[in-house]
Design a protein around this nucleic acid. Sequence first.
DNA 1: ACGGCAAGTAAGTAGGTACTTGCATACACA
DNA 2: TGTGTATGCAAGTACCTACTTACTTGCCGT
Lengths: 191, 191
Amino acid sequence: MISRERILEAAARVYSKHGFRGATTRLIAAEAGVNEVTLFRTFGSKGALLEAVLEENDRGDEVNPLPDPPVDPQRELTEWVETHLERIRTLRPMLIHAISEYEERPEVADFACRGRIDVHHHITEYVTRLHELGLADRDADVSAAVTMLISAVMSDAMGRPMAPHTFPPPDEAPRRYVRCFLRAIGAPSSR
Amino acid sequence: MISRERILEAAARVYSKHGFRGATTRLIAAEAGVNEVTLFRTFGSKGALLEAVLEENDRGDEVNPLPDPPVDPQRELTEWVETHLERIRTLRPMLIHAISEYEERPEVADFACRGRIDVHHHITEYVTRLHELGLADRDADVSAAVTMLISAVMSDAMGRPMAPHTFPPPDEAPRRYVRCFLRAIGAPSSR
DNA sequence: ACGGCAAGTAAGTAGGTACTTGCATACACA
DNA sequence: TGTGTATGCAAGTACCTACTTACTTGCCGT
């Protein structure tokens, strides 16, 4: 039953590179070092295999959550942005194909959306608490600001490989996004 | 020679829905109401046809540029964001496929990148002038803020269909993104 | 009335696709 | 020693793919 894992890993790699149509069962089997027939015996069909792959990668490992009482927003948010940038950067190829196949294979919708939605909820709660604690301007548009921060993370993770110089250097980006964000909501920037 | 145009339009539609692999010559010919052979006689190959399609849609119609001496940043930027949101929203399906096929068909790189790069230059110039005119904070991180504003536009245009409630209502979004942006760079908000 | 040219039609080529079937092999446990 | 269970192998099915060839049709200008 070790084949199952090898096939799943290989399928993830091949799907990430070539998308659903391009991820032929031959390619996946070869990449896994396994006979093509084994693939069908184990998963039944190519579609079922790809569903299994996405499910496998969909576990929202909610490591590194934002702390419940915000203490040092600049530091906490920066760390959080760093973590999620890295995470999305890893998922990027799979995400891109899932999105581009959204219309043809709506069953991948969950995988393509859940990340963004969860993240939005999580960070909105954090900032709402900031707001309640008086650590942000009364009339700040926190909702739009949150959207913009998440957009920056998504856009950076997805678009940097294609247009690198439209983003700040990778090591500075998280801190600078967060600083802009905190200024936008009128929070006192720690530095 | 009217077939050429019909094929180009049909190919754009089919490619937008199904991507390169899914856009079969049969489908395109049928959608164009044209014989498949005509397609090959006119464009030579499927690859050449798709290149023609992207080239056709790549014309950076630089309508509605930002004014050279900024007058009313909130209004001017909002209008600009509205325009480009609409534009990217239209290109969205084609863009998504072009991006997802970036590795397999690097010849579409231009189409996938140029928009973002041009826009970044254009808006950076505008904001730089704002900055020079003393209409923004001295120590504001204009570069990161610009990246975030563009990211918001891209993210909204590309992601809203998938996770609508993580964005402000469509009619308010441009104004609110711009307000956040102006606060981030410390510009006096007109309203 | 005729020549040229865009387009349609029918058929075929060579290859790839997901998926199946039947049989051989090897190891695991009882 | 025997029996299941996972896997490999070879071949085959039915269908789709891009692309070609050879021939026909219909229209347009001279």
